[in-house]
Design a binder for these strands. Structure first.
Length: 804
RNA sequence: GCGGGUGUGGCGGAAUUGGCAGACGCGCUAGAUUUAGGAUCUAGUGUCUUGCGACGUGGGGGUUCAAGUCCCUCCACCCGCACCA
C-alpha cells in the first residue's frame, strides 16, 4: 500500500501554518544560522522546476540546523519590480501592480505546496512602499556621499523597450530581455560610483567561501591592471594626450599611437590632407552597431590622422592613427603602439606597413610579436634588464621627468542606475527651477509611485512618470518650483539589500535594527543560479560595503558561503522552454507524485551544482523509495509495523544505522544531498533484509529523512506515537565505536592485483597480518616459482606482495 | 584567442591521505507472487571469454609496490570574457 500524499501534505502544511512552526525568534539566545535563497521575480509563468532545486537545498539545510539546536532564519520574498510587468501593462492597459500581485499569489501558493519551512511573517516585496522606502533611503545616502551622480554618457538605448540598459544587460549588441537591437546614444543618466569600491570588491573576495569560478568571473569583470599613464605631446600642436600601458618598459619600441575613433582630440589634430579619409572612417564606424563592430573586429581597420606624437623617451615622431580596436571606454582611449611586443599592434602594423622595432630580445619579429619576458635591447638605460625591473625603472624615469605616473586601471565601469520606466523605485531627487537639485528628505520617504490610468512611453525618452502631475513640486517654504526625477531604479536595486530587511522586516525607523543585524550577519549560506555571478552579487556587495562604511551594517561582506545550483534540463538534455514543449510544471508533479517526491528527486538527481536532465523514470524511482520507507514502517491499518520493536538489545542494524547517521549528517552539511540520500536508501534496503528493527533506529531514520521529505516524516513521526512536530526533535547522534567491526576484510594483492580477500581481527599486528597473508592458499599459488621482493602492509586495508 | 570547469557502465552518478573502480538510483534479465499488471518481493547486471583469466575511469606517455586520484602531453564538451593596451 502506498501513502496518500495529497492528504498528508495538506494536513502538515496546514499544521505548520496554524502553529507558525517556522517562526524565527530574532533575538533568541541560540546560535544563529541564516540560510538564504535568491528570491524570485514572480513571472506570469509561475514556478519552474528549477526553482525548487535551490529552495529544497536551503530548506534541508535549515531543517537540519533547527534539529541541531540552532535558531534558523529562512525567509522568502519577491523581487517584484521589473520589465515584464510593465510590458504587460503597456500591452493590455492594466496596472502592473495588480498583475504583480496576482503573480505573487501564484508563486506563493506553489512555494507553500512544496512544504518549505519559511517564516512567512518575514515575507518581503520590493514593490511595497514600506520596503522601497529603504531602497530610496540607501540611494539618498549614496547621493550624499557623492557616489550617485548624473552624467551625460553614451548609453545603450533600446528603442523597442524605450529604455536605457546597463552594459551587462546588453548581450552581443541586443537587449538581454527580448533580444531587441540596442544603439549608442548620449543621455543624461544617474550613475553609481561602484569603481570607487573596485579594489575592495576585488580584495575581499579572498574572505568569502564561494566557488572559484564565480570569484574568477568577478575578478575578470573588475579587470584590474597595473601599469603607467604616459603623456605624449602632439608635434606642431599645443595639444597633449595620455595613454595607459601595462608595459611602460617597451616605450622605446613605441612606433606609432592609436586613438579610439571617439577620442575628443581627433578633430583637433587631423590634417587637411587626411580629413576626408578620417571623416569617412568615422562615419563608417558610427553606422555600425556594437554588434557589427565586434563581429568585424577580426580584420583591423584604421586611418592615419596626419598628425604625429612625440615619443618622450627618444623624441622620435610617432604617426597618430585612429582605429576601432582601441576602445574609448578603457584607459584614456589612446594607446602607444608597440608592434614588436603586442599582438594587436603587430597585426595593425603589418597591415598598414608601420615600423616594428625590437626592444625585448628572444622572439622572431618577422613572424609574430614577442610578448614574453626577455633582455631589453635598443632601449638605452633599460638595456640588459628584464621586464619586471625595466617596468620599475621606466616608471621611475617617467615620474622623475614628470611625463608619466604609475597607474591602476579597471575594466569595471560605473553602474548606470536609471531606467526610463514606470515600474521601478522612483529616484528620490527633485530638480529645482534654479538649476539646483536635492534629495527628498528622509521623513518624506517613501516617495511613492503615483497611480496612473495609463502607462505609456512619454515619447521623449523620459519615463511615463513625466506625463503625470506627480512630477510637479513646490517648496512650501520658498515657493520655488521643481520637477521630480522621472527616472526609476533598475531591477537590481531592490535585490541589493533584501537579505538585510528579512532580519527585521517591519522596522519603521531603520532599515533594520543594528543589534539584530549583528546577530544574523553575514548570511551563512546563499544558494541561487549562476546567472547572477557578476551582476547581482557584485552590486549587492558594493551596496553592502557602502552600508558598512556608513555604519549601517556590521560586516564587510554580505554572503559568507555561496553556492550555485545547476540547471535542470529537459528529458532530451536540452534547456526547458515553451517552444520545445519540454517544460515540467511543479504543480503537475505535486499532484501526481507529491511534494516530498519532487524534493527527494531533485536532490537525488546528481550533485547540486550539476546540470542534469529531468527523467520521469527517475522521478518514479524517488516515489518508489518513499513508498518502500512507508511500507517498512507502517502496516495496512496505518499503524506501526510489527517489524519495528521497542528494544535496546544489539541488532544487526547497529552498524548500518550509525553509518547512516554519520554520512547523512556530513553530506547534508556539505550540500552533498545525492550521496546522503543514497545512504538513506542503503539503510532501508538493510531494513528490508532484517527480521526486526529497533524502534529507536526507525525514529532516528525518520528524523534524518525529515529535512528532505518533511510531510511524510511528520506523518510517520505521529504513527511512531509522538504528538509534536518533528521539526525541533533532536538530530540523531552516531556512536563511532559502532562503526568499527571486530573483524575487517583485508585485500590481498600480488603485484598490485587483487588475488584474494581474508577476514582478520581488527587489532591484528602488522607482522601477523603479513604472515597470514603470505600463508594464504591463493597467494601461495600465485607466488609459486617467484621470489618475494617486498611486502607492503596497510593495516586494516590490504597486503601487497611484490614478487618476480 | 584568454580564463575557469568537466570527461567513469546502456543512463544519472559514487569512490578520505594514491589502497577492492562502478555505492545508490534508473533501465535491463531471471525467478516468486498474482486472474492480470507498467504493482510488490528476491537474485543478477562494466567489457571480452565455455572456463582459467584478461581488459577497463576521453587518447598517449610517465612516477609508484599500487593511479579515476599525482606529473607531462593531446583531444572533446560546457561556462564566462572577448581587440581591456
Amino acid at each position: 500500500m502506498s501513502f496518500n500524499h495529497q492528504e498528508i501534505e495538506k494536513k502538515w502544511q496546514d499544521y505548520w501554518a496554524r502553529h507558525k512552526t517556522f517562526k524565527t525568534d530574532t533575538y533568541a539566545d541560540k546560535e544563529k544560522v541564516y540560510a538564504l535563497d535568491m528570491f524570485p521575480y514572480p513571472s506570469g509563468a509561475g514556478l519552474h522546476v528549477g526553482h525548487p532545486e535551490g529552495y529544497t537545498a536551503t530548506d534541508i539545510f535549515s531543517r537540519m540546523k533547527r534539529m541541531q539546536g540552532y535558531e534558523v532564519l529562512h525567509p522568502m520574498g519577491w523581487d517584484a519590480f521589473g520589465l515584464p510587468a510593465e510590458q504587460y501593462a503597456l500591452d493590455t492597459g492594466n496596472s502592473p501592480a495588480a498583475f504583480t500581485e496576482e503573480n505573487i499569489a501564484t508563486f506563493k501558493r506553489q512555494i507553500k505546496e512544496l512544504g518549505f519551512s519559511y517564516d512567512w511573517d518575514r515575507e518581503i516585496n520590493t514593490t511595497d512602499p514600506n520596503y522601497y522606502k529603504w531602497t530610496q533611503w540607501i540611494f539618498t545616502k549614496l547621493y550624499e556621499h557623492g557616489l550617485a551622480y548624473m552624467d551625460e554618457v553614451a548609453v545603450n538605448w533600446c528603442p523597442a523597450l524605450g529604455t536605457v540598459l546597463a552594459n551587462e544587460e546588453v548581450i552581443d549588441g541586443k537587449s538581454e530581455r527580448g533580444g531587441h537591437p540596442v544603439i549608442r546614444k548620449p543621455m543624461k543618466q544617474w550613475m553609481l560610483k561602484i569603481t570607487a569600491y573596485a579594489d575592495r570588491l576585488l580584495e575581499d573576495l579572498e574572505e568569502v567561501d564561494w566557488p572559484e569560478s564565480i570569484k574568477e568571473m568577478q575578478r575578470n569583470w573588475i579587470g584590474r591592471s597595473e601599469g603607467a599613464e604616459i603623456t605624449f605631446h602632439v608635434d606642431d600642436h599645443s595639444e597633449q594626450f595620455t595613454a595607459f600601458t601595462t608595459r611602460p618598459d617597451t616605450l622605446f619600441g613605441a612606433t606609432y599611437a592609436v586613438f579610439a575613433p571617439e577620442h575628443p582630440l581627433v578633430e583637433k589634430i587631423v590634417t587637411t590632407e587626411q580629413k576626408e579619409k578620417v571623416d569617412a572612417y568615422l562615419k563608417e564606424i558610427e553606422t555600425k552597431s556594437d554588434l557589427e563592430r565586434t563581429d568585424l573586429a577580426k580584420e583591423k581597420t584604421g586611418v592615419f590622422t596626419g598628425a604625429y606624437a612625440i615619443n618622450p623617451v627618444n623624441n622620435e615622431k610617432m604617426p597618430i592613427w585612429i582605429a576601432d580596436y582601441v576602445l574609448m571606454g578603457y584607459g584614456s582611449g589612446a594607446i602607444m603602439a608597440v608592434p614588436g611586443h603586442d599582438e594587436r599592434d603587430f597585426e595593425f602594423a603589418r597591415k598598414f606597413e608601420l615600423p616594428i622595432k625590437e626592444v625585448v630580445a628572444g622572439g622572431d619579429l618577422s613572424r609574430e610579436a614577442y610578448t614574453d619576458d626577455g633582455e631589453h635591447v635598443n632601449s638605452d638605460f633599460l638595456n640588459g634588464l628584464y621586464t619586471d625591473e625595466a617596468i620599475v625603472k621606466m616608471i621611475e624615469w617617467l615620474e622623475e621627468k614628470g611625463i608619466g605616473t604609475r597607474k591602476v586601471t579597471y575594466r569595471l565601469r560605473d553602474w548606470l542606475f536609471s531606467r526610463q520606466r514606470y515600474w521601478g523605485e522612483p529616484i528620490p531627487i527633485i530638480h529645482w527651477e534654479d538649476g539646483s537639485m536635492s534629495a527628498v528628505p528622509e521623513e518624506e520617504l517613501p516617495l511613492e509611485l503615483p497611480e496612473m490610468d495609463e502607462i505609456k512611453p512619454s515619447g521623449t525618452g523620459e519615463s511615463p512618470l513625466a506625463t503625470s502631475d506627480w512630477v510637479h513640486v513646490t517648496d512650501p517654504e520658498t515657493g520655488m518650483k521643481g520637477r521630480r526625477e522621472t527616472n526609476t531604479m533598475p531591477q537590481w536595486a531592490g535585490s541589493c539589500w533584501y537579505f538585510l530587511r528579512f532580519i527585521d522586516p517591519n522596522n519603521p525607523d531603520k532599515l533594520a535594527d543594528p543589534d539584530a543585524l549583528k546577530e544574523w550577519l553575514p548570511v551563512d549560506i546563499y544558494i541561487g543560479g549562476a546567472e547572477h555571478a557578476v551582476l547581482h552579487l557584485l552590486y549587492a556587495r558594493f551596496w553592502h560595503k557602502f552600508l558598512y562604511d556608513i555604519g549601517a551594517v556590521p560586516t564587510k561582506e554580505p554572503f559568507m558561503k555561496l553556492f550555485n545550483q545547476g540547471m535542470i534540463l529537459g528529458e532530451g538534455n536540452e534547456k526547458m522552454s515553451k517552444s520545445k514543449g519540454n517544460v515540467v510544471n511543479p504543480d503537475d508533479i505535486i499532484s501526481t507524485h507529491g511534494a516530498d517526491t519532487l524534493r527527494l528527486y531533485e536532490m537525488f538527481m546528481g550533485p547540486l551544482d550539476a546540470a542534469v536532465a529531468w527523467s520521469t523514470n527517475g522521478l518514479d524511482g524517488a516515489r518508489r523509495f518513499l513508498d518502500r520507507v512507508w511500507r517498512l514502517i507502517v502496516n495496512e491499518d496505518n499503524e506501526l509495523s510489527d517489524k519495528i520493536v521497542d528494544t535496546h538489545e544489539a541488532s544487526q542494524m547497529d552498524k548500518v544505522y550509525h553509518e547512516t547517521v554519520k554520512k547523512v549528517e556530513e553530506d547534508f552539511e556539505n550540500l552533498h544531498f545525492n550521496t546522503g540520500i543514497s545512504q538513506l536508501m542503503v539503510f532501508i534496503n538493510e531494513g528490508y533484509k532484517a527480521e526486526t528493527i529497533p524502534k529507536k533506529y526507525i525514529e532516528g531514520f525518520v528524523k534524518l529523512l525529515s529535512p528532505v521529505a518533511p510531510h511524510l516524516s511528520e506523518e510517520m513521526w505521529q504513527i511512531l506515537g509522538h504528538n509534536n512536530t518533528i521539526s525541533y526533535e533532536k538530530w540523531p547522534e552516531y556512536d563511532e565505536s559502532k562503526l568499527i567491526e571486530d573483524e575487517v576484510e583485508i585485500v590481498l594483492q600480488v603485484m598490485g592485483k587483487v588475488r584474494a580477500k581474508m577476514n582478520v581481527p581488527k587489532d591484528i599486528t602488522k607482522e601477523e597480518l603479513e604472515k597470514q597473508a603470505l600463508q594464504h592458499e591463493k597467494i601461495q599459488e600465485f607466488l609459486e616459482g617467484k621470489t618475494v621482493r617486498k611486502v607492503i602492509v596497510v593495516p586494516g586495508k590490504l597486503v601487497n606482495v611484490v614478487a618476480n
